[in-house]
Write a protein that binds this DNA or RNA. Structure first.
Lengths: 207, 207
DNA sequence: CCGAAACTGAACTGCCCGGTTTATACTGGG
DNA sequence: CCCAGTATAAACCGGGCAGTTCAGTTTCGG
């Protein structure tokens, strides 16, 4: 048995607590979530839960932190500078759209927005490990591509941010308002192609 | 005295209640708002408040409805088809940016996002009287301008939605995460100009 | 100036929920 | 087999808050 990993954070049920908390927080948000429900979902007593975390906020912060970390690793896959620039932009756009429309993306974002007023550090944490990080990666790729003469871009940071924003077209407002949560392949393709066309029209090197 | 208008909704203090409710809901959100505070802010007793509205949710829905209605009128000013197309697009972009960065825009949006899970009809209401309406107006303008040969657009609806989304670049993620709530004129100009440049590069008639 | 309707304020009910306590039981190493 | 650390269930506390009630006051049309 993996004695080391299981025991460092003294207490066998630490992971269960996190797991249960994630499930309930994702479903109900911070205010909406009920500690009794979390304990039940985790298959753990409330007393045990409170032996690990001093209060609900800290528990939530820990769940959010873990989630953001996980996300930042999975979402930003490497963009190969060698490939066709249009191809590369399309690849980035697809990754963005898939993330934005994922259950996880929707929920984390909703919670961050809802709670950032009463919970400022959370918003920053999410921004840094989400949008900001992605923007930096995209910016890196664009800088390389510009150096290679594929694009003509004055303000790389702006261009990166525009590309990211374009991929939310149509989708984002609908998700945030709860109008539509699932999008078909055709819908996504329309948005991705639209974003790529627009980006290339603006920034592709003319030569 | 304006007997008609004041009396239809039997009760002298109806407007006061709405006014107080708006103030508190804007400040604290739905869950965060406290009915006692609303009554106090409205200068009205709780009993009076409850004589107008059966419960907190209905009160909130009414406030939100009024706000959206008001917004839709003020934000979408008429776009003169006669003006230079670039000028017109710039005008639309500015209106969007100003709305998105306004206290009111920020709050309404935050509340809608936060509450749309437990309050589905609110999200729809907001979407219909906000994003959807604006998109339709922008679409109308674009259709006219296309007919006049100013633009070349296949999918007008997509183009309208892209323009709206582009105006949120940089600003929106920061607001929603609570990183930054106020934006200088220079920052706004950068976004607006970036959006206009991009839109024109993609859709302006080549002739 | 009368009387009905509107309004008041303050106390009260009932519920929910975060967090604590307690008394008991399980588990695993020495 | 023992004991110390860990887990549990359930009762409990206290505060906050939506919504109600009621006895008394204000407002205003007729």
């Amino acid at each position: 048995m993996n004695v080391i990993a299981e025991t460092i954070k003294k207490g066998r049920k630490f992971d269960q607590v996190i797991e249960g908390a994630r499930a309930i927080f994702m479903r109900d948000g911070f205010e909406g979530a009920n500690v009794d429900d979390i304990a039940k979902a985790a298959g753990v007593s409330k007393a045990t839960l409170y032996s690990y975390f001093p209060d609900k906020r800290v528990l939530f912060a820990e769940v959010a932190r873990q989630e953001c970390e996980r996300q930042s690793q999975s979402t930003i896959s490497v963009v190969d500078t060698a490939t066709d620039p249009r191809e590369a932009i399309s690849h980035i756009a697809w990754a963005m759209v898939e993330f934005v429309t994922s259950d996880f993306g929707i929920n984390v974002f909703r919670i961050c927005v809802a709670e950032s007023a009463r919970f400022p550090e959370l918003g920053c944490q999410f921004y840094d490990s989400g949008p900001k990080l992605v923007r930096e990666r995209v910016g890196e790729y664009l800088s390389c591509a510009v150096a290679q003469g594929h694009f003509e871009i004055d303000d790389v940071e702006l261009a990166a941010e525009q590309l990211m924003e374009l991929t939310k077209t149509y989708i984002f407002p609908r998700i945030l308002c709860g109008i539509q949560l699932k999008f078909s392949m055709e819908e996504k393709k329309r948005i991705v192609d639209g974003a790529v066309d627009m980006f290339m029209a603006r920034y592709a090197a003319k030569a």
